[in-house]
Simulated assay, not measured.
Amino acid sequence: MPLSEHEQRMLDQLEQALAAEDPKFASSMEGSRRGGPTRTRWVIAVVGVVAGLGLVLLGINTTMWVGAAGFAVMVAAVAYALAPPRKGRGGLAAVRADGTTGPSRGHGGGGRQKSGSGFMDKLDDRWDRRSQDGWR
């Protein structure tokens, strides 16, 4: 079921706020949108599993170590196929208050600076109000 326009706008705003607050987490979550391994990864995995199986069968006739190496090749091929692909720098672009996009500006010191415009700042303010009203 597709999202309505309002829901899509809200989702876009949440993504932008997330990218502004924590760009590293946002870029790691962006990779999880993909459905799974790409065709190239599947082909490499199949070739690796077949080669590993061949080494296992060869290891039956020769030594145990060849078979163990074949098993390791098979496991590595499957792990490669199922691992998320590495992405270069980039991902979701942070949208600043002035409307420009780009990487998020880091917070200079060790303390947190509240600008009042970030998504997490708004959530923190709501939490503080709840705590003051006796919601614990």
Rank of each mutant, 00 (worst) to 15 (best):
G108L: 03
D124F: 00
P85L: 13
H107G: 06
S115E: 11
R130P: 00
G110E: 11
K114V: 15
A94H: 04
S131R: 14
S131V: 11
A79R: 05
R89E: 13
R126A: 09
R112I: 13
R96F: 10
H107C: 05
P103V: 08
R129A: 09
P85M: 12
A79Y: 00
G116C: 04
D128Q: 11
R105H: 15
P103C: 09
D124G: 10
G110M: 15
G109H: 12
D125R: 09
V95S: 07
P85E: 06
R86Y: 00
L82W: 11
D128S: 05
R89H: 13
T101K: 12
L92Q: 08
A77Y: 03
K122H: 14
S131F: 14
K122C: 07
S131M: 05
A83R: 13
P103K: 12
T100P: 01
R96V: 00
D121V: 00
D121L: 05
A79N: 05
Y80D: 01
R96D: 04
R86F: 13
A94T: 09
G99W: 08
A77T: 00
P103F: 11
D124I: 02
G116E: 04
Q132E: 07
A97E: 13
T101L: 12
G109Y: 07
F119I: 14
R96M: 04
